[in-house]
Amino acid sequence: MTPVSSTRATVLGDLIGSRLSADRRGLHERLTAALTHVNQEIVTDQPLAVIAGDEVQGTYAGVGDALGAVFLLRSLLSPGTDLRFGIGRGDVTVLDAETGIQDGPGWWAARQAIEEVEAGQQVTGQATWRTAYREHEPDHGTEQAVNAALVCQDLVLGSLDQTGWTIVRGMMQERTHASIAEELGISRQAVQQRRKSAGLPMLLASISALRSLP
Rank of each mutant, 00 (worst) to 15 (best):
A34E: 03
V50Y: 04
H140S: 14
L210S: 02
S6C: 01
S212Q: 15
A33N: 04
D23M: 07
M1N: 06
L157C: 10
E143Y: 02
T32M: 02
T176K: 06
Q112L: 08
Q121N: 07
P105Q: 05
I180S: 11
P47E: 05
A205D: 15
I207G: 00
T124A: 14
G125N: 14
D82W: 04
I42G: 01
S21A: 15
T2H: 11
R25M: 11
T7E: 08
G125E: 11
P47Y: 04
L200Y: 12
G26Q: 11
V146F: 09
V146Y: 07
T142V: 15
P3L: 12
E116C: 00
K196V: 03
A149D: 14
A127V: 11
I42L: 04
I51R: 07
G68R: 13
G68L: 03
Q57L: 13
A33L: 01
L83N: 01
D96W: 07
G58F: 05
V117L: 09
R84I: 15
I101G: 00
A190Q: 08
E183M: 11
L83A: 05
L20G: 01
G185A: 10
L150W: 14
L35V: 06
A61F: 11
R30C: 03
A113R: 03
Q121H: 06
I180W: 10
G58C: 07
G17V: 10
L155A: 15
A33D: 10
D103K: 07
I180V: 13
H28W: 09
R130N: 01
L67C: 06
D161Y: 05
Q189P: 00
L20Y: 10
V92E: 02
A145T: 13
W108F: 12
E137D: 11
V70K: 06
G106C: 02
G86P: 03
R188T: 15
V70T: 04
V94R: 06
Q189K: 13
I16H: 03
H136Y: 06
H140Y: 12
Q46T: 15
K196D: 08
A113W: 05
Q144K: 05
L15G: 00
E137R: 09
S6K: 12
Q192P: 00
L184W: 14
I101D: 14
L184C: 07
Q192M: 13
E137Q: 11
A119S: 14
H140R: 14
T7K: 05
R188D: 15
D103R: 04
A49L: 12
I114E: 04
S212C: 08
H37K: 03
L160M: 12
S197M: 08
G68H: 09
D103I: 08
L83C: 04
G170M: 13
D82M: 09
V146D: 02
L213I: 06
E182G: 06
R24H: 12
R74M: 12
A97G: 00
I42W: 10
G68I: 03
W129S: 03
G141D: 11
